[in-house]
Every structure is written in structure tokens, then in C-alpha cells.
Design a protein around this nucleic acid. Structure first.
Lengths: 352, 352
DNA sequence: CCACCTCGTGGAACCGTTTCCATGGAAACG
DNA sequence: CGTTTCCATGGAAACGGTTCCACGAGGTGG
């Protein structure tokens, strides 16, 4: 059952392959008669053009790749959805890939996307911008970072050894303001009298993980919080590490009176632990989440969260891709994040 | 900046294109010398094979498509994730597409996947199996249905006009037992004394929407519930319709004492409405959700839900695809669904 | 009436691979 | 030593489209 090609269509329509191709791609130099014949032949034979062959000859594939860490995280699902939707409007298909918070898998998918010759990529990167990601950036394929970047947000006095190695290639990025969101959260807790505030941090291989941790530390110092390093539990942005992190924090000899989760799956995990232990959220321990999931308003007490806008990030990333593909310079953006105070944060309880 | 091709590699390595190709694809008939030369040339030039050209010559693309209704629905995100993960293990890439609960968009993506010549598709179909979907099924591309099918689950005395038009092509499907789950939910509510049970139903263009509605009606009849048709609010599996449906039900002159949501986004929407109106869930009105999201255990009271296993569905669907691609017959499966009773369902309150 | 331009058309090259087939040399065998 | 077998190799034909180029017919202006 060989599939029907443009040659079959041309034969059936009684025209040359060249003419058939022109009709199919809407080239103006075609007679009405040819058009009718070709269209009829297409319908009769059930012809489906082969996108691979087409794109091999043209330079474009009409496909963009989006590489996020985990589609099961609603935050990234929303981004992927927004990018895809916007891309489809522009007639482009989207390949969604899951790096699964693993650099290896990220590299694997980067290779895949390059080999598929996607026209552009939207990436939520992780790692230090060495290895495969670096190579890929050098290839000249339009890339837009979303949510994360390689270098850190604002200033950057933490560059390990000067020759950072990530900033030489300029990549537009659509991120959100991690510093402000987390700072507001800490200030809010300070105002409520908390002195020992725990953070379930994100992986330090990601800019968001680093920035949120840094903002936490700076705000903690400014608010004169207990700088005990044990108050930072290292997580990996996934559910299980939220569970583990919350347990570790609660098991401290002097446990925190408030906990901040650096993303929503970890926050959910922490919440489960609090429930399981019968800790009253907002009274015994305050909890601040990240990302404003619908479900976060429905738990009791409703969660105080740092909110930002993944749908908008995705849309802007898609716009940036469109600009890049059109040869225009694409602009980066840092979207605002802000604290939404609900019931899960309350006055610090005096340690027993 | 023309990209480097296998010809460049061959030239640099001092071998023919044929030999270079053999080395690259691990063909045994290559000398160690050639291998070394080619590998060196590849590294020096940064050569990346072109998957399109390769797949054009071979017959396989090494890509499968997965077409679900909405990746923002955690249920489908989990399925997509599972399929992708399993496929990657088998060395295949996955293209994720969003039909967005719209037949038009489904058709659009079906065309896209066919033109990309994916080796197989995993589809959560909607519509009546006419139009594009039907054509695609006739193309001989291996297809596996997941979560939904075209025909209805068990018997099927509802086939509108005999010549159903969907059963002629046999497609393996991995679904879950919609009837049992919903029946258990209704029976549970009946046992609690509820007589007027509302359903926020899924779209009747989907098998899951139809089956859950039918199961509701059958169980309602068996349990001697009030058969008032106004108790069924027609939704579309998306959040907003859950909100609208719940409002409509609560605004009835004689509102239901219990509500069942036919999927999780609609359930979440309904829950929001109950909260917003100050209705005490599990006391004033009982609520049963569909899909066992992590967040559903964390709301207060925890939600009674019909649980099933999207991760397993995705994995089985990927296995079925693997079988089909290997020429083996693929087996369908109906996974169990069961009621998980938590705090959101309680004794019926006497209507005021 | 001729030169010119426009327009629809078909032949053929090309995109970057894989793979069939023929070839030549070396090794194995009698 | 001659013949067969084996194996690495290169040339060239696919795969299924698009597009360059040349060509002939018909219309227009001088």
C-alpha cells in the first residue's frame, strides 16, 4: 500500500508534477483548468502531501520545539499550551518535550529537536549552559528562553570564575520576577512575626531555583531572620522532594514557624506532610506556595502564594519566536510576580 | 551559514558518502580506519544528521503523535507524560497536540500528524468518527485510542441509526471503566439518602461523556432517584462549564442535594461556585469529583472522587503502539475505576 | 508585421539521507 | 597458483516534494 505522491496526482490530473505542485502550494501562475483538475485528483486519490519532503526542499519545517521540564506541572502545561496555541495561529506546529528536570534528558531532546530541524525552540533551560545546550545555541537556530535563563536575573556577583560562559550568546528570555515575589513573601512573614522561615528550594541548576533562593536569603537578612542554613531544604521542583523537604524542616530540633515552597508541586507535597502530621496550616505553621493554581484557592485555609502568569509567558515567548523568525529582534520581558495573601499565613506561634 | 551535510563529513574524512552513512548508522561493514576518520570529521564539523532526509529514505520517522483534548487537564497531562516517557525508552519521539475539545482543531492536528508521517498515533478522540478522523483511520497508520473511543463502551442500544459508521475499523483502545465508577458514585449517594443528584455532564461528542451520563441515568433509575432532566447540566469538560453547570443546578427551584462532576476541571469549577456561595460541601451539598488529583485530597473536606489511573493508561497505550509497530496485534484494555469516599459526601440534608 | 512581454507549462535539478549494486583487493581454499 | 568467498568501498538511484529555467502561445504597442 504505497502512499500516493504528487506524481500520482499529476498523472491523474493530466498535468506535470511542477504544475501540480504549484496548484497545491497556491502559486498564482496556474490556470483555472489545472486547478480544477488537480483539486479533483487530490480528492479522488486522497492525496496527503509529505511535510518532510516539502521541508527538505524549502528551508523551513513550520515546526517549533518547546522543551519544558515537566508537563505534569500545571505551570509548564499552561506555558506549553499557550505557546502551542499561539504558534498554531501562525500556522506552525509545536513539538512538546519533557526534560523531566534532568540535564541528560534535556540534552537528548535538544539533539532530537535539532535533528528534526525545527525552525525555532522555546526552552526552559537547566544546567550551566555547557554541553549540548551550548552547542545548540551556537547553531544559529532561533531560541527563546521561557521562565528560566542561564545567567541569573539582575546583578550577578555570584559568577563563579568571571568567564561565566553563558552570556556570550544572547538569547531573548521571557521570565518572571522571582526576586520580588519571594521578597514579598518573606516580608509578609516577617511582618507576621516569623523569625525562622523555612524554604524548600528549587534545584540550583536552574535560574529560578537560584534566584528564589538568593531572594530568600537577601530578604531574610534584611528582615533579620534566623540565618540558620538548616532552614533551607534542597528540592528539585518535583512533588517528592517537597514531601521530603517538609519532613526534614519539621523534624528540626527547632522547626520553622513558616515554610515557603519554591514551586507548586513541592508546595503540594509540603501541604500533604502538614496535613498528615495534623499541623494546622496558618496557625501552627504558615505556608506560602508558588504559582497560583486554581486548587490553591480551594484548600482550607486557602494558600498564600506568589502568583505569576504562565499563560502570558507562553504567549510572549511565542511572539518572540515569531519576531526572531521574521528577522526582527525579539524583546525579552520580565513579568511581574506578586504575593497573594490568603489564609495559610498567620501570626507566628511562639515556639513551644 | 549552510548547515553541514553528510557530504561535507565524507569529504573531510576522505571517504565516500556511502561509507560515511554506513559509519553513522552503525552498519557493520566498515573498517576501523573509516570509522575513526568519519567520527573525527563529525566532531570537527559539528555534523547533525537531518532526521527528515533520513526518514524520507527509510520508511519510518521514529515519531509518534499523541492527540489529547487539553494538556492543561492534569489527567491528560499525565497520559501524555506516560506515553512520551515510554516512547522515549523505545527511542521514539513524541509530538503532543491539543485538540482543545474542538473537533475542528482535532481535524487540523490529524492532518498535521499525517503530513508529518508519524509512525503511529495515540488519540483521545471526539466526534462521531466521521470526517477527517475516519479518513485517517482508513490510511493504515497504526492508531490507539486512549481514554475515549468512538463506539460506546458495553452494549449500545443507543446507536442512532443502525449504520453507526465507527465500528468498521478496529482500533485498539485503552480506556477506563466509566460505568462502574459513576454507578458506585450514585449508589453511594443513594445510600446517604440523596434523591436529587445533579450531574455536570461531559460533552456527548465523547464516549466518556456519553458513558458517564448513561451510567448516571441507569444508576439513578435503579436507585429510584428523581429523574428530573433539569438535574443534568451539559458541560464540555472544561473549567468554565463546571462553573456554569454548578450555578444552573444550584439555581433550580428545587436544587440537588448532591452534585457529581464528570471530570476534574468541571469539578474544580463547581467547587469554586459552592465556596463562593458559602455552601458547606459535604453538609449542605455533597460533591463527587472525577479523577483523583493530588489537590482533591487537600481541599477541606477532602473530595470523594471516582479514581482511575492515567499513568497506567498512557503506558499501556504506548505498549499497544509498540505492538502495532512490531506487527503484533495490540490488545485493548479497560482499566478499573472505583469510588474513593472522603469527606465531601455526607447524608442528604432535608430540603428546606 | 515584428519585437516584446506575460503567462501557463513541463523538464530537470536539488534538498540530505539510505541502500542497491558493482568493483577491486585480500584472504581462504582447493 | 588459480579460483572462490568475503568485505570494505564508491557511484548512483531512490525518497517526495519545490523551484529554476526554457519554451511556446497569445496579447500588446510601435
Amino acid at each position: 500500500m504505497r502512499s500516493v505522491t504528487i506524481r500520482d496526482v499529476a498523472a491523474r490530473a493530466g498535468v506535470s508534477v511542477a504544475t501540480a505542485s504549484r496548484v497545491l502550494s497556491g502559486h498564482p501562475a496556474t490556470s483555472p483548468a489545472s486547478r480544477a483538475n488537480v483539486d479533483a485528483a487530490v480528492a479522488e486519490l486522497g492525496y496527503r502531501p509529505d511535510a518532510r519532503a516539502r521541508s527538505l526542499r524549502k528551508t523551513r519545517t513550520g515546526t517549533i520545539g518547546i522543551l519544558v521540564s515537566d508537563v505534569r506541572n500545571p505551570f509548564f502545561a499552561e506555558i506549553a499550551y499557550a505557546v502551542e496555541r499561539r504558534a498554531l495561529q501562525a500556522g506552525m506546529a509545536t513539538v512538546v518535550c519533557n526534560a523531566d528536570e534532568s540535564v541528560d534528558q534535556q540534552d537528548r531532546y535538544l539533539d532530537l529537536l535539532v535533528e528534526q530541524r525545527v525552525d525555532a525552540m522555546v526552552i526552559a533551560p537547566q544546567g550551566d549552559g555547557s554541553g549540548t545546550l551550548r552547542e545548540v545555541l551556537g547553531l544559529g537556530i532561533p531560541v527563546v528562553f521561557v521562565d528560566r535563563t542561564l545567567a541569573d536575573g539582575s546583578d550577578g556577583s555570584d559568577g563563579s570564575d568571571g568567564s561565566d560562559g553563558s552570556g556570550d550568546v544572547s538569547v531573548p528570555s521571557i521570565t518572571s520576577d522571582n526576586r520580588t515575589g519571594l521578597r514579598e513573601a518573606v516580608e509578609h512573614l516577617v511582618a507576621l512575626g516569623h523569625r525562622r522561615v523555612g524554604l524548600i528550594a528549587g534545584p540550583q541548576e536552574t535560574s529560578t531555583g537560584r534566584e528564589r533562593l538568593r531572594a530568600y536569603r537577601e530578604a531574610a537578612a534584611a528582615g533579620d531572620l534566623d540565618p540558620d542554613p538548616a532552614l533551607v531544604a534542597q528540592g528539585d521542583f518535583q512533588h517528592a522532594s517537597g514531601v521530603a523537604g517538609a519532613r526534614r524542616l519539621l523534624d528540626l530540633d527547632d522547626p520553622p514557624t513558616a515554610i515557603i515552597g519554591a514551586d507548586s508541586p513541592m508546595t503540594l507535597g509540603a501541604l500533604e506532610v502538614l496535613r498528615e502530621r495534623g499541623v494546622r496550616v496558618g496557625e501552627d505553621v504558615s505556608l506560602v506556595g508558588y504559582d497560583d493554581l486554581a486548587a490553591f484557592s480551594l484548600v482550607t485555609p486557602a494558600l498564600t502564594v506568589v502568583a505569576h502568569d504562565p499563560a502570558r509567558m507562553g504567549a510572549l515567548a511565542a511572539d518572540a519566536v515569531r519576531d526572531l523568525l521574521a528577522g526582527r529582534p525579539a524583546s525579552s520581558a520580565v513579568l511581574p510576580a506578586h504575593l497573594v495573601v490568603r489564609g495559610s499565613t498567620g501570626p507566628a506561634r511562639r515556639p513551644a
